[in-house]
Each structure stands twice: as C-alpha cells, then as structure tokens.
Amino acid sequence: MDDKKLSRYLQSVGQACFIRFFEEFSSDTLSRDALIAKLRDQTTYTEKSCASRVSKARSILNAGLADKALSLIASSNSGRVSQEVKEKARSYLVEKQQP
C-alpha cells in the first residue's frame, strides 16, 4: 500500500474512528462481523459505513502500516483532528515501541 492509498483509507475510516477503535481493529479475536456490530452500537454510522471502516482499517493494519498511520494522525494539521486524538495516537506509538 503506497502513501496515497494509506491516506485515502485513513480518510475513509476517519482519523478519530481509527484511534477510538484502534485496539479493536488490531484485535485478532474480534471477527469482522463482531467489530461491525460494535461500531454500530457505539456510533451513529450505518451498517454499510461500519463495514467499510472495518475493512479499510484492517487493510491498513494488515499492510503493516499501523505506525505510519498513527504518526500521520499524531502530526495532523487538520482542524478536524482534536488534540485528544493526536495525543492518543502518540500514546499508541509509545506503547508499540516498548518491548
């Protein structure tokens, strides 16, 4: 996955959504359907939107681009990305660096 595709996928998932559900997206124990149901329960997204977000988030992670995605979010200049989301992205990066 190139940088352009990563950015497009991250935009499709939503940076705040990617961070809010990062642990769930990263989980091997949650099935695709269970994760879609969780997003439906905890957000106002449609089922189709949840399915798309899950698919694209997992594609980013399966491509080994979690760190790159987290770095992009942490350094985002977009006014739509809150400071809280940026801080959480930074904390995930720090956690991933620890053995």
Rank of each mutant, 00 (worst) to 15 (best):
V81E: 06
S59M: 07
K48E: 12
Y92G: 00
A66S: 14
L72W: 02
E23I: 06
E23R: 01
R20K: 14
I73Q: 00
L30V: 04
R32K: 13
A16Y: 01
V13F: 02
S26L: 02
D67Y: 12
S27I: 01
Y92D: 02
A89T: 03
A74R: 07
Y45H: 08
C17H: 08
S27E: 11
L30N: 10
G79C: 06
S12T: 13
L61G: 03
S75L: 10
A66N: 04
C17V: 15
N77H: 14
R80Q: 15
Q98P: 07
K38P: 04
S59G: 11
L6D: 05
K4G: 08
S59F: 11
K56P: 03
G64Q: 10
I36M: 09
F21C: 04
K38S: 13
G79A: 15
N62L: 07
A16G: 15
Q42T: 11
Q83L: 13
E47I: 05
R53A: 07
S27F: 06
D2H: 08
F22G: 03
S82F: 04
L30A: 05
F18G: 00
T46H: 13
V94G: 03
I73C: 03
L93Q: 02
E84W: 12
K86A: 08
R80C: 13
D28K: 13
D3W: 09
M1P: 10
A63G: 05
L30G: 02
